[in-house]
Design a protein around this nucleic acid. Structure first.
Lengths: 163, 163
DNA sequence: ATCAGTTACGTAATTAATTACGCAAATATA
DNA sequence: TATATTTGCGTAATTAATTACGTAACTGAT
């Protein structure tokens, strides 16, 4: 989006965030593949989470990753197919299915960590090159909306106009 | 995403950007509807573009909005169904189909502009509250990757490590 | 004027994620 | 203890966007 939208400024924050995210995700996928690893960026949050926490139920994961539980199920299916995670029925709660990394999944970890280090490093270069830090800006926004949601702020603003 | 990911910092820039974008988009949709307007945030770029430029072909739009041309066709279908845009065959180039706002679409404009003003205003409040401006940060990133793509930077970094 | 290559568009298939719905197990309540 | 409510999960349908592919119209080089 160029010229036509430039004056819109704050109106299209969301679109611009999405565009930048898509761009990086796409480049990330390319990067894994060019390093000969069949790993998709979309798997990262689930895989990484499981590498940190022994075993988790579907809903716990959904909450931690802030995605819907069917999304977790879908991602889990893909990673199970790859043989990188396994699932077991919980003994304490028969409703629960617990996910964890398999041996094969754990074996992959060191290799992935090398890639992640590179990604982290290049991302850091990006951030370091900035006069205005995107991570700080994001963090500020997150805190801002945590304290009062976007929708609430909208309502308040409209009410304040009526007076 | 909380604690587990916090230390990842730059590694998950993309996910965080996406999450924030999704959040705002969703709130935006809610806002249109609570104001009694059947308008979706995803229509904004196309609708707004057509409100600024008389008539455009599918591909021109796709390029300007930075989305695929089937996406434009899809959005156009929806807006045509709403009766807000119409399409005509180009006389200069028989391959081209030109899109523009219909009378009904133009009539809607003032109403939408009021909403957009509110959105702009609340977004401005968000940005003003920031010590670190997200728009500036985004702009810097865009310029950064324009000058050299993410993928290129990855390659260069890996080569520099080999030495 | 012809033919190769490019451009504009449309359709189909695929991908990634969501919402809606239903069932079974656990928990709370009367 | 029976029953109502909540929770965890799975499936199906839907949404939004992409890639892949095909066709027709235009353009450029000979």
């Amino acid at each position: 989006m160029q010229d036509v939208f430039s004056k819109l400024g704050p109106l299209i924050i969301a679109s611009r965030l999405k565009r930048m995210s898509d761009y990086i995700m796409r480049a990330g996928a390319e990067f894994y593949h060019s390093n000969g690893i069949e790993f998709e960026p979309k798997w990262f949050p689930l895989y990484y989470l499981l590498s940190q926490e022994k075993e988790l139920g579907i809903m716990e994961i959904a909450q931690k990753l802030n995605i819907s539980h069917p999304a977790v199920i879908q991602l889990a299916k893909e990673l199970e197919k790859k043989g990188w995670i396994i699932s077991t029925k919980s003994k304490e709660d028969a409703r629960k299915r617990l996910l964890k990394l398999s041996k094969k999944g754990l074996n992959l970890l060191p290799q992935l960590q090398l890639i992640w280090d590179d990604i982290r490093e290049v991302n850091r270069q990006v951030v370091d090159a900035q006069a205005t830090n995107i991570l700080t800006a994001l963090e500020e926004m997150e805190t801002f909306f945590d304290s009062k949601s976007y929708t609430e702020r909208m309502k308040l603003f409209q009410e304040s106009k009526k007076k």
